[in-house]
Nucleic acid binder design. Structure first.
Length: 577
RNA sequence: GCGCCCAUAGCUCAGCUGGAUAGAGCGUUGGCCUCCGGAGCCAAAGGUCAGAGGUUCGAAUCCUCUUGGGCGCGCCA
């Protein structure tokens, strides 16, 4: 509805440009917002105040000229100039009735925004190292990223979701070695398990799987394995992984892959149950093995952006605003993690994505500048490289901060959070905060099945409508939705509800543009309030048949919008609770 | 020391390219079912938008500085 009004005002601007009242530059999409107060109409535009200076006119005067040039439309009741030069638009009842019909006919598709020439977007998120289960911080990134992808798609963007699997590098080697050492313990070997190896229970589980599937195949002489190891802990673990490789030869890859597959599958199923699904799981190892890193480095080299110093290969990122240059290949000949990032970036562009969105934990913010520098150095527009940082979530239970230490025994994993508060509550709570805001996650509140919990407030609204329709069916009451006379919806609370319903496409569009799915959550809460208020004030079933038909169309439209909105957040819309 | 994020009601947070009288939930206080689900509704109280300057018709919003909190500054991943 807003978009239609917007285009009417735009037509007026075009006419004024043609009449040379306004400069050609003024012929843009006018800014239009929902009026905050009813007395200001339905929509308000500040376009006259913005353009007044360019036109050499007073704002109110220009506003009058714009209004004169707005085409006749049955959508508009009247248009007024107000205050310092606002253009206030009063939408006709006809327009609102038409919107209700629109919701009914579009169904699950209502809220979709038709848009053209939008960029293809790659949204990469979570991408946690597959070295263990996801924790609640990853959960926030997952809930946010998934909701963002859903919102972008609803708004007409072609958005792809991807999980970058860090399956190459030192940490994975340490992980595979950790599994092997536990496996050796299972086969009776006496070993000293290093402190800086992975010690989680899941390592035992994977080791047991290896033992079950492969028997004694990976057994080696432990005494030889631990002989003459370096004293330094980091050097020792690296020496162990090197010896594991040497001792196991081709079998090293078998253990490595069993470990990797097990952990990735664990993460995948955890996320899928959380209703977070990815289009693709992209392997870092595939970048290494396909030579993509060499290619990316060659790219930068040809551009003259690499140099050697102290035996290492450096990228001169300072030329792109970074505080210092970064190493891409160490003196020992190995590429850094950053080199993979550069290659990955290049790979995404080669797959045809115009815009790259990265969702990272706030602790990674130091990597933004250098990675954007690489993106730009590869010949791209830095504005197409977007990093959205997710701030930390702090859990509270009983008013006390929950320790996030892995050893404390307090729950830290996403799976535990999901089990404790439920997927719907967890997703809604995550969605209720904009990502750059630090988050206090109140477990007691999320768990409470009471009026304190905003999830139920919205879901309850949906369930209530479903319940009304169940009653209709049970009582055999006839309901003619198609023939309903919607002009009977004259109550103030009915009109408030219709107005809120008609905002849904605008909310989707705004949420997508700002990468802020939390706007959907707040909208749904406001809509639920309008619905509950209406529900309490007027009867549906008990009213006479013509009015009943109209009111049932209204609440059924509300049901549809609740369902569509909750879908965007990955929260279920129950028919009963 | 340098850099990024944040600061709005007692608490947790919204506030839409800067816009008209700054909003909501929880909590507090007082009300509402002979009726469709009380996980509901209505109402009241509650604010120097951290502080100080600046930009302009207009600032919670943009800029500068200060204060306070979170995080980051490896040839780690």
């Amino acid at each position: 509805m807003k978009f239609q009004v917007q285009s009417l005002i735009q037509t007026a601007l075009t006419r004024l440009v043609d009449a040379e009242v306004l400069p050609a530059a003024a012929n843009t999409e006018p800014y239009l917002e929902r009026a905050r107060q009813r007395s200001h109409g339905d929509f308000a535009s500040n376009v006259a105040m913005v353009l007044a200076r360019h036109a050499g006119m007073k704002p109110r005067e220009l506003a009058e000229r714009i209004i004169e040039n707005i085409p006749e439309s049955e959508l508009i009741e009247r248009v007024e100039v107000a205050g310092p030069g606002f253009i206030n638009v009063f939408v006709s009842d006809f327009a609102y009735r038409q919107e209700l019909r629109e919701i009914r006919s579009m169904g699950a598709r209502y809220g979709e925004v038709r848009a053209e020439n939008l960029p293809r977007i790659m949204v990469e998120f979570v991408s946690a190292n597959p070295t263990g289960p996801l924790h609640v911080g990853h959960g926030r990134g997952a809930a946010y990223g998934d909701a963002l992808v859903r919102v972008l798609r609803k708004a007409g963007y072609e958005a792809a979701s991807e999980y970058y699997v860090n399956d190459a590098g030192r940490q994975m080697d340490i992980l595979a070695t950790s599994v092997w050492l536990r496996y050796l313990e299972l086969t009776g070997a006496e070993i000293v398990f290093p402190d800086n190896a992975y010690r989680g229970d899941y390592i035992y589980d994977i080791a047991a799987t290896c033992h079950r599937e492969y028997g004694e195949r990976f057994v080696t002489d432990a005494g030889e394995l631990f002989a003459d190891l370096p004293v330094d802990a980091e050097a020792r673990i690296d020496a162990l992984t090197a010896r594991a490789r040497a001792a196991l030869e081709d079998d090293y890859r078998v253990i490595f892959d069993v470990t990797l597959d097990t952990l990735v599958e664990d993460i995948r199923s955890d996320l899928a149950q959380f209703r977070v699904e990815f289009d693709t799981w992209f392997s870092e190892r595939s970048l290494v093995e396909s030579g993509a890193i060499d290619r990316a480095v060659a790219h930068l080299s040809e551009a003259g952006l690499l140099y050697e110093k102290d035996g290492a290969l450096w990228f001169s990122s300072t030329g792109f605003g970074d505080e210092k240059d970064r190493v891409v290949r160490r003196a020992n000949g190995q590429y850094t993690y950053f080199a993979s990032d550069i290659a990955y970036c290049l790979n995404k562009k080669e797959r045809g994505f115009d815009k790259l969105i990265y969702i990272w934990g706030a602790d990674h913010h130091g990597y933004v500048t250098r990675t954007r520098a690489a993106f730009e150095a590869l010949g791209n527009d830095p504005d197409e490289f977007i990093v959205l940082l997710v701030q930390f979530a702090v859990l509270y239970r009983g008013g006390e901060k929950v320790s996030m230490s892995t050893r404390s025994g307090e729950f830290v994993t996403l799976r535990e959070l999901r089990r404790e508060v439920g997927d719907d509550a967890a997703r809604f709570f995550y969605a209720l905060r904009k990502v750059e805001q630090h988050m206090d996650f109140d477990l007691d509140l999320a768990k409470s099945k009471s009026n304190e919990n905003p999830v139920y407030y919205v879901q309850y609204a949906h369930a209530r409508v479903c319940s009304v329709f169940r009653q209709i069916r049970e009582k055999g009451i006839a309901h003619d939705a198609e023939g309903a006379d919607l002009s009977l919806l004259v109550e103030a609370r009915e009109q408030d509800l219709v107005r809120d319903l008609s905002r849904f496409p605008e909310v989707v569009e705004a949420a997508a543009r700002a990468y802020e799915p939390h706007q959907v959550a707040y909208y749904l809460r406001e809509l639920a309030q309008a619905f509950h208020t209406y529900y309490n004030a007027h009867p549906f079933i008990a009213s006479e048949s013509a009015l009943r038909d109209a009111r049932l169309v209204l609440i059924d439209a509300a049901r549809q919008v609740f369902a569509n909105g909750l879908e965007l957040l990955g929260v279920s819309a129950p028919e009963s609770m």
